[in-house]
Design a protein around this nucleic acid. Structure first.
Lengths: 213, 213
DNA sequence: GTCTATATTATGATAGAC
DNA sequence: GTCTATCATAATATAGAC
């Protein structure tokens, strides 16, 4: 194998991380200023670079956003969705799903905030025909994630660990309460993972158990 | 009194409604496309008019947005906040507040969605010094509205109608669940007020009572 | 892989006719 | 009170040097 081919192979391995840097900077900018208000120069500034670098990794601003969006869902599925299949009653599984979801809202806030943004783009979106297909795929991923909650609510009614509620509505009110964490949460100075886990469990207890005496 | 002065007085009385039209169109556009993505031409198009009309009623785009924001809070305070003082236990009052809040999310969705938008502008916003003061006022109005929920949670712990929870956290999880209604709700064709009231009550029951058996 | 131009287009805001 | 220009600016995206 020639030396330059080896270098190319090495670059292929490194390249994802460079991409990752751009992606993280973009997520942060999109969260702070919103999608439209964020210019490619803003993203470049956040990297301490110029537009050239951003455009080298992502063809366009929409594609950059779509990647942020995709990453946000993948994180949720990997961290929270997996708990759908697990030990215990449906209520126990839902508790673990909600707890993990909340931790994602706190620890990957920048990515998660953009998930809501993308949903609006889809609902009202005046997007090009080309991007519409991509967006459709992403929305299906998200719907799949939501379905895990819907199914768990139905399972809870079946195994008696939860009330018999409309699963779709329950999914929406529960996800609303815990998605909102990404809206108000701000990390405190010197905050530890244990701190966040305690907060997450307090939220889960309030939301699943209700507020009434 | 000369005839033209009378005409001016009449115009003063009519003028608020014309302003209102612009405001409603702006709220709709801001909701659909977001604040930055919405151009003044978009707002004008939604009115079937040109920019001239928009700029006649509002000095600038930020001022237009601030008015949408202010309207959103006023509606919430008038419709839901008033139920803080009312008959019954704290749990009953909270139920009425939540129910009214949800109906606002459904019936003035365009305005309410922009409330969240404005909060972000405040948190991360790079706004001019002049607009910062206006935004500060609006945030205080919103904080005051949230305080009504905080106080009611505390009252519920005191009068025994509700669990003894951290009132600030409870306010956030509850408002999260019911604010989210504005995100997913879409009016059905031929939907009546009674329909929405039934949905609102189902949501209140789920959220206040929790999901566990 | 990153930079420095640069082309092209769209937007916020204003001036002045009607 | 609304319209038709028009200006100034800023942003997306590209081309080409290094």
């Amino acid at each position: 194998m020639p030396a330059d081919m080896q270098a190319t192979a090495a670059n292929d391995l490194i390249s994802p991380d460079r991409r990752e840097e751009v992606l993280a900077a973009a997520a942060e900018c999109f969260m702070r200023r919103g999608y439209e208000a964020t210019s490619m120069d803003d993203v470049a500034d956040a990297l301490g670079a110029t537009k050239g670098r951003v455009y080298h990794h992502f063809r366009s601003k929409p594609e950059l956003f779509f990647e942020v969006f995709r990453r946000a869902i993948f994180i949720l599925i990997r961290e929270a969705g997996v708990h759908e299949t697990g030990p215990g009653h449906a209520a126990d599984r839902l508790r673990r799903m909600a707890r993990a979801h909340i931790l994602c809202m706190m620890e990957t806030q920048a990515f998660q905030r953009n998930l809501t943004l993308g949903v609006d783009l889809y609902r009202f979106g005046e997007t090009s025909e080309e991007h519409k297909a991509t967006l459709e795929d992403l929305m299906n991923l998200r719907r799949g994630y939501e379905d895990a909650f819907r199914r768990t609510f139905a399972a809870g009614a079946a195994d008696g660990s939860m009330k018999a509620l409309d699963p779709s509505l329950a999914m929406r009110t529960l996800l609303g309460a815990i998605n909102w964490v990404a809206v108000w949460y701000s990390p405190r100075a010197g905050e530890t993972r244990a701190h966040r886990e305690k907060l997450a469990e307090e939220i889960v207890a309030q939301v699943l158990g209700g507020y009434l005496a």
